[in-house]
Design a protein around this nucleic acid. Structure first.
Lengths: 226, 226
DNA sequence: CAACTATTCAAGCAATTACTTGAATAGATG
DNA sequence: CATCTATTCAAGTAATTGCTTGAATAGTTG
């Protein structure tokens, strides 16, 4: 292969891989992927959850779709978007992990906005698994119900953060409550722990979220709670 | 946490992660990471290997450094760059794998430039490991010697592609030769297999390259060949 | 079939990015 | 200390990207 052809090959092949990097180069699109890691969403739902205009959201989804990171299914008026495969979730989670491990600013932003994060205890996936085996915790999924139904930690109960205040009596008082939500950068579980503690419960949050739990091959379920 | 603060937190935290995506959004920078996966390089060496001006190369390295994906060590006049950690290599390899699995254009570009790729056999890491245990192959590292010294497959011999023609007699004729190089998109091993076969050797290439082998925890060594 | 709804498209504008070029910086050498 | 070397910096230019806005498209409803 002559050097010019070799150079052209290199340029083209790396430009192909760069398509994925371009898709992941926007904070907006990363947030959309984070949401889609929970369940499939319509454009309108995504726009609302990520505080984007529908047109802007649609354009970001188009970019993610062009990079083959999301897939779409038409349902009447609705376009339902989801992550295009398990390997996309895997890539997203490892990408986020490298960000956490390498960028000091990640911790700094967390520290700035969630001042009390260090005082609320967080437990790891492994610690939760061990506690589940001992059956001495209540696992509380505080994501919106649709996300719960799409997939949740096995044996978790669903009480969305939005309705937790008026459903506290459903939670047994004697057990430790482990609240979880979408992931380390979702604050539903932080808010839940704060509310629960202010009512005398012993509560902690799961460090990660449902996608991490699932990707680690830990026990999951779908549908409504038993 | 009020909704406005929550929105600001989300915007800022995802923008932090987007820094990694931005760093990976350029084919140039991906090629630099691919090179740095083999060994540490000076700016000048990287510029030459990737066909970039030194100034342009320096700017791309600055972006990679700002995203904490590479680190630099000054050595007199020289700035020696390397991957900043094992997790960066891991991210790069999984990023490339998702590209391979999801982007049809990757195969198409390979097909266009390496028409004979399908006729030359490639074996997997697992197959090579099994053959090594049976001790019935010669493993040939055809990367430049400096890359070999930085790290190579255990028991591999080093004959850089550039000097293979005149060093053929060093290779035993009776064994199968498995040639490997930097990775699936490096053609040193393709060229080596073609040359070897044209001289009557039975030769194949390793599907992957040294970084994949190492990241999979397979046996490696450093320094000059024993 | 008109009106409504969800989504996408296209164009304009501002910001960002990639490369080049020449200058600046810092270390090495004789 | 002048000269050389490797690298980085800064500015200019062209291309690309992100968001908005209004229009277009396609499906649904009454």
């Amino acid at each position: 292969m002559d050097p010019i052809a070799k150079r052209r090959f290199k340029d083209e092949i790396f430009e192909q891989f760069a398509r994925i990097g371009k898709a992941l180069s926007s904070g907006r699109r990363l947030e959309l992927l984070d949401l889609l890691a929970q369940r499939e969403f319509s454009v309108e739902e995504l726009a609302e959850a990520a505080s984007l205009s529908v047109a802007n959201c649609s354009q970001h989804l188009r970019i993610l779709h062009a990079a083959r990171l999301v897939s779409v299914q038409r349902d009447g008026l609705y376009a339902r978007y989801r992550l295009a495969g398990e390997n996309v979730l895997d890539l997203y989670l490892s990408f986020r992990r490298v960000g956490e491990e390498r960028l000091a600013e990640v911790s700094r932003v967390v520290q700035t906005y969630l001042k009390d994060r260090s005082s609320l205890q967080a437990i790891t996936n492994g610690e939760l698994l061990a506690r589940l085996k001992k059956r001495d915790v209540v696992v509380l999924d505080v994501r919106p119900e649709k996300e719960f139904r799409a997939g949740h930690i096995a044996d978790a109960r669903s009480i969305p953060m939005a309705t937790l205040q008026k459903r506290l009596k459903e939670i047994p008082r004697r057990s430790t409550v482990v609240a979880y939500c979408r992931g380390p950068y979702c604050v539903f579980a932080d808010e839940a722990v704060t509310l629960l503690r202010s009512h005398g419960y012993h509560a902690v949050r799961l460090e990660t979220g449902f996608p991490d739990w699932k990707m680690q091959g830990l026990p999951v379920a779908t549908g409504v709670q038993q």
